[in-house]
Amino acid sequence: MRIDCPLCGPRDRREFTYQGDALALDRPDPEAGFGVWNDYLHNRDNPAGPTRELWYHDSGCTAWLVVTRDTVTHEVHRVELARDVKEAGK
């Protein structure tokens, strides 16, 4: 598996560390309530198909990335800097 880092170009999977669902970027309001926070902290979907994940390019540029990939075909559809994703969501 290769991940096409927006800064470094296509790199081997061993340079990256997997963190979890990119949902972690959407931190709820501190007062959002128990149900919302419970979802944010503990509940994740387990899709057979496209999924958005956070990966860390620890042996490369040390950037956090949002990787959109397919858990069925292992195809990597899109790789963005988490910083850019966060900026775009503002």
Binding site: C8, R11, R14, E15, S59, G60, C61, T62
Partner: peptide
């Protein structure tokens, strides 16, 4: 030449 990479 002139390229650099952070890698392992």
């Amino acid at each position: 030449q002139g390229h650099a990479a952070r890698t392992e």
